[in-house]
Design a protein around this nucleic acid. Structure first.
Length: 271
DNA sequence: ATTCTTGTTGCATC
DNA sequence: AGATGCAACAAGAA
């Protein structure tokens, strides 16, 4: 589920822990979400440390603690963050949990366990945080970067290319479809076929969709307006909110993809 | 019972 | 060497 804006939403769900000290760390040792993590070092560093701030970028979150300790969280497909008190009923999938001074519990829940946690301690920011590519909403994300990337992935469908985190951090399946639908490009168009005008259109639409998603979903998980593709893409018999014609669903780039055949026509990308 | 899934990675192949 | 495609991971939902 979690793409750019959902991740920002979940980041804030741990806000009740800000400024508080960790009094307990629990990682389900059998859970895959802890793969590759030095559990003992993590527990040692976080116990007694104070949570100073949280950050979100792409589909990644970072929680910074005193002592130069950082906890990274990636939600995978089904992960979520929750906060509660001692009254909170545990779920089968509470794989990682921080108990904070005052009794607040910060929990990472993830049934499918495609998500994971990371840990780092030292000066500056963790390497896995520093290497996240420039955000789509940042000045560093330019049409030139998009054009160069599309050239390199020339023979791949634009749908699959938009899902590549190394250039489009935070874009997931629904956002990719939303962008292509709004910009009027067929998901199976080859990335190499995009002309300069189409690259600029794609770049601008990426920014718009990210900004609107952050304002609506990232803010408080409000329901997106019906003018978005989002509300129609999974309904059987769903109709394009602009063309009012039936939407199509098919697998493109290995993922279920939804588009409006009257608005998204192969060839439009050549301009 | 079967097929589906808003993500990523590692590996085989081109 | 770099690009491309796909199975695998796990488990709930329809």
């Amino acid at each position: 589920m979690p793409e750019l804006a959902e991740v920002e939403y979940f980041r804030k769900r741990w806000n009740p822990g800000l400024g508080r000290k960790v009094v307990g760390v629990r990682l389900n040792p059998k859970a895959r979400v802890g793969r590759g993590v030095d559990t003992r070092a993590l527990a040692k560093a976080l116990t007694g440390a104070k949570l100073l701030e949280s950050l979100a970028a792409a589909k990644q979150m970072a929680f910074r603690f005193t002592g130069g300790a950082w906890l990274g969280v990636h939600l995978g497909m089904t992960g979520r963050l929750e906060a509660g008190d001692a009254e909170r009923a545990p779920t089968l999938y509470d794989h990682f949990q921080l108990t904070m001074a005052g009794g607040r519990e910060l929990v990472f829940v993830d049934p499918r366990q495609f998500g994971r946690i990371q840990f780092w301690q030292g000066e500056g920011v963790p390497p896995w945080w520093a290497k996240i590519p420039p955000a789509i909403l940042s000045d560093a994300f330019t049409p030139g970067l998009v054009a160069a990337f599309l050239r390199r992935r020339a023979r791949t469908s634009i749908k699959a290319v938009l899902l590549m985190q190394e250039r489009f951090p935070g874009i997931g399946n629904w956002m990719a479809d939303e962008v292509l639908w709004r910009a009027g490009f067929h998901p199976e168009a080859k990335a190499g076929a995009f002309g300069p005008k189409s690259v600029r259109k794609l770049h601008a639409t990426l920014r718009t969709v990210c900004a609107e998603a952050m304002a609506v979903i990232g803010k408080d998980w409000s329901d997106p307006p019906d003018a978005w593709l989002f509300n129609h893409r999974w309904q059987d018999g769903g109709r394009c909110p602009r063309a009012k014609k039936p939407l199509v669903r098919a697998e493109v780039g290995g993922r279920t993809t939804c588009w409006s055949p009257t608005r998204q026509v192969l060839g439009a990308e050549r301009r």
